[in-house]
Amino acid sequence: MTLKYLVRKIVFYVVALWAAITLNFALPRMMPGNPMLVLVAKFKGQINPHALSSYAQLFGLDQHTSILTQYFQYIGQVFHGNLGYSFGLYPETVTQVLMQSLPWTLFLLGTSTVISFVIGTLLGIVSAWRRGSVLDSVAPTVFTLLGAFPYFWLALVALYFLAFRLRWFPIGHAYSDTVMGWSWANLPDILYHAILPALTIVVTSIGGWLLGMRNNMITTLSEEYVKVAKAKGLANTRVMLRYAARNAILPNITSFALSLGFILSGALLTEIVFSYPGLGYELFQAVGNEDYPMMQGALLLIAIGVLVANFLADLVYVRLDPRARRAQ
């Protein structure tokens, strides 16, 4: 049982990784007439031969190598972290650029997703526990409505009213022009810049967690073991958290893992609106610059990031559900 579960999980991650890499390999080769040829021709003479051959491998410009050989070369390169040189930011490599933007995305997205998950789940627990209360009739409806708002538009409006008109918050970016990047001394400035984008992500994504958790809780509350817990004379909060919520959160963790890709998509748009220097913004810049190596690299990194986050969620799940944990 458990071994089968483990094998299935491993197969899943291997296949997902393989699919992401293969997709990346195939995308530029699907382009009609390979615009890369034109671009590389344009750059010829300006870039060194090493970079040139790297492009050739990444995008299949070398007509003499078979597609299969190209494929294995590509996989080899990816595993060495070699994603080629950026077009737009040459001579920086794609890996270098991405490593600069990754921390910003992790910081903004990670924090706001955790905050929204925690608040949404708690609100869901309490709404279900107090069926029919004011909280239960207001919170799910309000956050469902907010969840229907497009992230990017809410970001735009927030930017316009709170930053541009009221000047409560800075207009975009991760830090002020006067400070240079990340340091502990800059932390207040960085937090100040992160509040508004984080807030739009939190506000729009709470609804999903809330509703999911509320529905799980309602199912769980009618379970026999919750009734027995009440019959045991345990304190209300103990029944609610240790018996009901502890079980109800399990499916929510699975959905958390699986909807990460979805949430991430919305959040990347928020980065773009706020010119926040994370992966989403980088990807968007790359599209504007026709910087194909960068697009490829960003997509791959985002996919890997989601896979890693999924893996972590799986670990948490196994930790919380003894039925998935114990080998018997």
């Binding site: 997902a16 890709g261 979805f262 599209v287």
Partner: peptide, 12 residues
Amino acid sequence: LIIPGLPLVIVL
């Protein structure tokens, strides 16, 4: 499910 839709769509 897990491959993030929007970045893929952007690139596509």
